[in-house]
Design a binder for these strands. Sequence first.
DNA 1: CAACCGATTGACTGGTCAGTCAACCAGTCT
DNA 2: AGACTGGTTGACTGACCAGTCAATCGGTTG
Lengths: 199, 199
Amino acid sequence: MAKAPPIDKRRNILDAAVRVFARQGFHSTRVSDIADEAEVAYGLVYHYFKSKDEVLNELFTERWSLLLAAIDEADASSNTPREKMSAVAAFIVDSYRHEPELMKVIIVEVTRAANSFGRTHLPEIRRAYDSIAKIVADGQELGAFRRDIDPVFASMSFYGAIEQLLSGWIFEVIPASATDFEQAKELVVATICDGLEPR
Amino acid sequence: MAKAPPIDKRRNILDAAVRVFARQGFHSTRVSDIADEAEVAYGLVYHYFKSKDEVLNELFTERWSLLLAAIDEADASSNTPREKMSAVAAFIVDSYRHEPELMKVIIVEVTRAANSFGRTHLPEIRRAYDSIAKIVADGQELGAFRRDIDPVFASMSFYGAIEQLLSGWIFEVIPASATDFEQAKELVVATICDGLEPR
DNA sequence: CAACCGATTGACTGGTCAGTCAACCAGTCT
DNA sequence: AGACTGGTTGACTGACCAGTCAATCGGTTG
C-alpha cells in the first residue's frame, strides 16, 4: 500500500489558494490562478477538490476548528473569566500574527461574507459565539461579570471588536506591528471588561 | 424645459436594487434582476447608471453620508461623551430598524467587503472611525474616558461591536424585535463605557 | 405638422471561467 | 514484459452575463 509522496500536492494547492485568495479575493481568483501558484496543472485542483468552493471550505474548516478548540480549552481552564476572555483574544490575534493571509481569507471571505459563503458555515461560526457566551455566563454566575448584559450579546460585542481590529490590520486602516498586536490583546479585554470610563 | 416625471425611474431602480441585493447578494444579482424588480427594461438601468457597480456605489454613498453627518452632529452637541456615543449607536441601530434591507446591503456588500467593493470606499469608512475616535479623544481630554486606550482603537471596538450586532440580526443569529433594538442601543454603550465587570 | 430630444426597449455580442474528460505517465504487482 | 492503478496534464465546452446599440415611443417646440 501507501506512498506518502514526499510532496503533498493537495497541501500545496491549499497553501497556494491561501496566497491567491488573500491577494485577489475569492471571487476574482480563477482556478487557473490557484493551479499556477501551486505550479500544478489546472485539472489537478479538481482531482483533489470537488470545486473551487470546496477549497475555501476546507481552509475555513481546518482553521475554525482550531479556534473552537482554543475557546473550549480556555473555558475548561481554571482561570478567571477575564483570563479566559484574554486567552481567546490572544489566540485570535496570534493567529493573525502568524498567518495573516489565511486569517484574511477566513475573515474576508467567510466570516464577514455570511451572505455568499459564510451562509454554509453559519452553524460553526455561531458555535464560536455560543462558546464565548458560555464563558460570559459562567462569569456572571461567579459574580465576576455583571448580570444585566445578555451573554450572547456580550459575546458578539467582544468577538465583533476583535474582528474589527483584524479588519483594520488587514486593510491597513490601523498600524500592525508586533507591539500593536500585544497591546491589542490587552486593550480589547480592558475595553470589554473594564469599559472606557475610568473606575 | 423640465418635467419631473411623476414616477422617478432612477429612484425605482435604486430601490429595486436594494431589495434584490438584500435578497440575493450583489454578486449573484444579474442586472436583469434589478430591471425586472423595478419593472423596467434592461437597458434603462444603463441609462441611469454607468454600471452595476455604480448602482451599489450610489446606495452606499447616499447612506453613508447620513451616518457621517449623524456622527458629526452627535459630536457637535453639548452632551457628555457617553451620550454622544449613545447617539451614534442609536442612529445606526435605528437605520437598521427602519431600513433593514438597505443596511444589510451596505454592511454585507460594502463595509464588510472591504476587499472587493469596500476598497473603493475605505476613505469614507475610515472617516467614520476617525470621527468616532474624535469623540473618544475629547472624552479623554475631559476626563470622562480613561486615557490609556487609543481613541482609534476604542472607536474600532465600538463600531465593530455594533456592526457585529447588525450582522447577528441580518443573519438571524440573534433575535431582532423592537425591544431587542432598544436594549441593544443601551447595552453596547454600557458594555463599551462601563465594561462587563461590575463597578 | 415636422423636427427634435430624452426616455425606454430588449436583442445581441464578446469575454470570461468553472468544470469535464480523454490521454499520458510512473510506479507496482505478477 | 504486460497489465493495472492512481496521479497528472491541459485543451475544450457550455453557461452565464455585463454592457452595447439601433430602434421606438411620447412629449414639446416652432
